[in-house]
Simulated assay, not measured.
Amino acid sequence: MNKSDFHFDLPPDLIAQAPLPQRSASRLLVVDGDSGALEDRTFTDLVGLLQPGDLLVFNDTRVLPARLFGHKASGGAVEILIERVTGTHEARAQLGVSKKPKEGGRIVLQDGTEVSVLGREGEFFLLRFETAEPLEKVLLRLGRMPLPPYIDRAADAADDERYQTVFARTAGAVAAPTAGLHFDEELLQRIAQRGVDTGYVTLHVGAGTFQPMRAKRIEDHAMHREWLNVGAELVQKIRRTRDSGGRVIAVGTTVVRALESALRDGELQPFAGETQIFIFPGYSITSVDALVTNFHLPESTLLMLVSAFSGRDRIFAAYRHAVEKRYRFFSYGDAMLLWPGGRARG
């Protein structure tokens, strides 16, 4: 398959530039993976679409304020986007600069903190922060929330809270698991009262999630690496849910990637480590029974993942419907509830 098979035209004014005043006020497009039927709902309707005994699985990663600003020793402005914290004082990062620095180069942050360029790893630079305090403290002090490139404004104080899920607890991501942004404490309480259980994976979303696919054939694409943890407690919850006839619903594509990466011979096992799993049509997703997700970028690996789950034709029909009905797209946009194609949803 070619990446052009996953292109669609989107009016720019449908790209959400800011969150709604209330997290759970988003719209929800329900897509039946077998019939292709589409149903326009509000996000709070999700409660009634769940059944007692179901399990919602969230990604509890916490977004770091990973965007830093400084200048080279020569004076040229530099924007640093941390891709991953790799040590107490080290990180892998993208650099926005007119002329890329060489190994041994220096960057000076706004407060005078010096950063050494240790080398390159593909498109990323390896950096060391020459300071006594841990890098995460430097980010908390100087960093800004790393809003996606399609949000055409600088991050402000409101984004510090809204570009973060209410259940975020394990710091390490540089992009939000955006399907989780629709949940507020009141909605989570209603879900619990419905008799629906919750569980968590951790997958630290990297900046590579926004990198365009350069290979023409999707089979030739190499995914970026992301760190994840699927714990023993969650594995047991999923087994109990399935054994009792309940359904496992992933909140976000990162949850799907984490769970599919933790499969061993078809069985879910505890796993902590890196993944480069690439899910596209032809891959059979078996770890979850439904998926809550936002609308994704054209030709993106995430669009390919949801197409693998519900079927490409059904997904593209849903996207055409969403454009016609003026749903809000991408990170701060509306959501979909996807049932899988090709098998019963229970």
Rank of each mutant, 00 (worst) to 15 (best):
E121K: 11
H182S: 01
L109D: 02
Y200L: 14
L135Q: 01
D289F: 00
L14A: 00
R217V: 08
R326K: 15
T61C: 03
D197C: 00
R326I: 01
S284D: 13
P298C: 02
R242Y: 00
V138Y: 02
D159L: 10
V323T: 12
G112P: 06
A272N: 04
A176E: 00
V288Y: 03
A179Q: 02
L49Q: 00
D160W: 03
D13I: 04
T293I: 08
A25S: 14
P177Q: 05
F210M: 12
R128L: 06
E299Y: 01
V255D: 04
L126E: 10
G346C: 02
E90G: 01
A37L: 12
E233R: 14
Y200T: 12
E130A: 07
G180P: 07
T86K: 10
Q269I: 09
E79N: 09
R190S: 02
I80R: 12
K216T: 13
L118T: 02
L139E: 09
I191Y: 04
D13A: 05
F125S: 13
A77T: 13
R62D: 08
Q189Y: 02
S4M: 04
L56W: 00
V57R: 04
T209W: 10
T88S: 14
G333K: 13
P52G: 05
L109S: 05
L38K: 04
L38M: 05
R120I: 02
P146W: 08
G341S: 13
G180A: 02
H221T: 11
P12E: 10
F278R: 04
R264A: 05
R27C: 05
G172Q: 07
R128Y: 01
A207R: 12
V288F: 02
Y283H: 14
V85M: 14
A157R: 11
R41V: 00
R141D: 11
P21H: 05
V166R: 10
G172P: 07
V115L: 06
I218Q: 06
Q236G: 03
L139G: 02
S310H: 04
T88H: 08
D32L: 06
A272M: 07
D60S: 09
A179V: 08
A250I: 13
D159P: 10
H89V: 05
A262L: 11
I151K: 09
W227F: 15
R62G: 03
G206V: 09
R239H: 12
M213G: 01
F167E: 07
L126K: 09
R144Y: 06
F316M: 14
D5H: 13
A93T: 13
E260C: 06
L10Y: 07
Q94R: 15
R242C: 08
V31Y: 06
P177S: 03
L68V: 08
R247G: 00
G53T: 03
S261K: 04
A171H: 00
V255F: 06
L268S: 03
D152Q: 15
Y332Q: 08
R67I: 10
S74Q: 12
D54L: 05
R264I: 08
